[in-house]
Design a binder for these strands. Structure first.
Lengths: 262, 262
DNA sequence: TCAGAAACTTCCATCACATGAAACTTTAGT
DNA sequence: ACTAAAGTTTCATGTGATGGAAGTTTCTGA
């Protein structure tokens, strides 16, 4: 189930561990910072980083800090989560966005979290917790709950055993969440009420691929201003179904190609 | 100076060589294909690929083919060529695009080629030779000529010594190109006339960072339908200058952070 | 201005881990 | 059914990764 910082004993693993120290909060790092975060000896990191730099996997700024280089960027654009799903889904997301200008997003499963693949939002949207590339908790987001509800037993078990709290409303009781998941599976949509961040509510529906497997989730996030998001459920479900059909047509119905973790 | 398929003697190098076999033309590959293209023994590739798959750097589709995975994608989004340059430049590119709906693009230097960072184009634009992530020849594109004209002597020498021909009009004479480069540097813009592809002409101007260093190029590509692109030169220069100022403000004026290979 | 620390770099003796040939299994093609 | 190609597993060998130690450079603060 990954997620553990398995102290890989292979060189490739170490190299990836080095790259993995980079995230939205650490886009530029010093050598020492990389070493600390990767939990590897400074000398080893020093060598690896140099190698990665020579190959343009990392770039070194004039201040000595490293950041992700053009090679990784170029390769990343080839991922089908990026170009394909994005291309097919954007028009549909745009439609939903037009309704009330609420943030619209699509997510896939990535290990024990959900990975935001694409997102449309106005500039005046609340706090931006999620943007493409973010990985959020499965139990506190609409899209996450949908993916979790349709996930296998192993995944559910792993997630239910470690429910982090984010707000007053976050569901941390495995029993309650389990019941919700069952409802979500039956009703075909999930909702959250300020469970990840105060003032934000969401609705999400599954996107299905070949054979009806859930391969992604489509969600809408809005400020909790008393408006009844429930009214949007039918629209979301219709859009979700239409998009699902398109995804299968486009040959993206294969979960293995979109999803990530085991 | 890279570019050569230096058969790296390091593990990290081999792993990157494996990843490097993926490009727009080879987004999904079998194990054997990867091995052939990386020029590595099948067994070795087999092991590396497995490792990369475990770390989600690669994903294996149900048909056995591999493709770039979510980890690389996620990391790629952190590259500043992507998020920062893109974010700052898009509004300006949009403005230029509105003029005649010609394709607009921004490129940076990447080794001996120019790397297309962002591109706006209508759906009815000619053939799409370039899209984000593409690497084109420096001597046959507008943006490439700009970057080359402002590049250092070492770069110019390397490029001038291997001028591939793409069309009837491609400049393959080092002397002629060298003269053009000098003119470009003085006049502040470059143009091409069907030098990379028949039927396409382009204009490009430099984008300058801190201290006036050229860090990228802004270009426009149009069908060669008799229209006089020359009239657009002033607009491009003004836009380029404005965008340059914004880039410096945004702290992106540091060439080392944008450019890639030496 | 200087001392001390932290970040970075170089060196190299040791051995862990990558290597790839060979043999075997599975999948496609006719 | 037969053949070829793709994919997988195994393992003896030694190459190239390792990381402690020591040296250099760059910060920090007084």
């Amino acid at each position: 189930m990954a997620e553990k910082s398995v102290p890989t004993r292979t060189v490739t693993g170490r190299a990836l561990a080095v790259l993995d120290t980079f995230d939205a909060k650490h886009r530029r790092q010093s050598l020492a910072s990389i070493a600390r975060r990767a939990e590897l000896p400074l000398t080893t990191v020093h060598r690896l980083v140099h190698e990665l730099e020579n190959q343009n996997a990392l770039v070194r700024g004039s201040d000595g800090d490293y950041e992700i280089g053009s090679k990784i960027w170029r390769l990343g654009l080839l991922a089908s989560v990026h170009s394909e799903l994005r291309e097919v889904a954007l028009p549909y997301m745009e439609d939903v966005y037009q309704l009330h200008n609420d943030a619209v997003q699509i997510a896939v499963l990535d290990g024990l979290r959900c990975l935001i693949v694409e997102r449309i939002a106005g500039s005046r949207t609340l706090e931006v917790i999620s943007k493409p590339g973010s990985r959020l908790a499965l139990h506190a987001t609409g899209v996450g709950k949908v993916l979790l509800a349709h996930g296998d037993a192993e995944l559910q078990k792993a997630v239910l055993n470690s429910l982090d709290r984010f707000t007053e409303q976050t569901i941390t009781d495995p029993g309650i969440l389990e019941t919700q998941l069952k409802t979500i599976k039956v009703q075909g949509f999930a909702k959250t009420q300020e469970e990840l961040a105060e003032g934000a509510v969401s609705i999400a529906v599954p996107l299905r691929g070949k054979g009806g497997n859930v391969i992604a989730a489509l969600g809408i996030v809005a400020p909790s201003d008393g408006r009844d998001l429930g009214k949007l459920v039918p629209v979301m479900q219709v859009t979700g179904a239409a998009l699902s059909r398109k995804l299968v047509e486009a040959g993206l119905g294969d979960a293995a190609r979109l999803q990530a973790g085991s």
